[in-house]
């Protein structure tokens, strides 16, 4: 389950960035608030780093008056393409799993 969650989380991050850049803390908090999606918010930071190294997102540092510089994330064209490809596969995957679970529940 943790492998599935980890794989899906990458695309949840990309989905949150589709409408524009986001501060890393806000991203992490929003994902952390989603029910059953994240067990440890801290593990999202390595995930963000991995997405950056893979060229799925780009970041910009900005000064903050209330603390250390803030890192803002935005999706790249590669990230957007990966998200679109995933979204299509995910719909089929989700429907198939739901159908099998419902079938099992009726049996």
């Amino acid at each position: 389950m943790s492998q599935l969650r980890r794989g899906v989380l990458e695309f949840c991050v990309l989905a949150l960035l589709r409408d524009g850049e986001r501060y890393s803390f806000d991203l992490v908090r929003e994902l952390g608030d989603a029910d059953g999606l994240v067990t440890s918010e801290g593990t999202l930071y390595p995930l963000l780093g991995r997405l950056r190294r893979e060229g799925m997102v780009q970041t910009t540092w900005r000064e903050s008056v209330s603390g250390p510089p803030r890192r803002y994330y935005r999706i790249t064209p590669d990230g957007d393409a990966a998200l679109q490809a995933f979204a299509g596969q995910w719909a089929r995957f989700r429907d198939s799993v739901d159908a099998l679970i419902e079938l099992g529940a009726r049996a």
Binding site: S24, F25, V28, R29, G42, Y45, S66, P69
Partner: peptide, 17 residues
């Protein structure tokens, strides 16, 4: 460099939260 980056990110998180 990875540890430094992690510490910076988590410190930022803790500063906010």
């Amino acid at each position: 460099h990875r540890l430094r980056e992690l510490l910076t990110e988590i410190e930022g998180h803790l500063t906010e939260a």
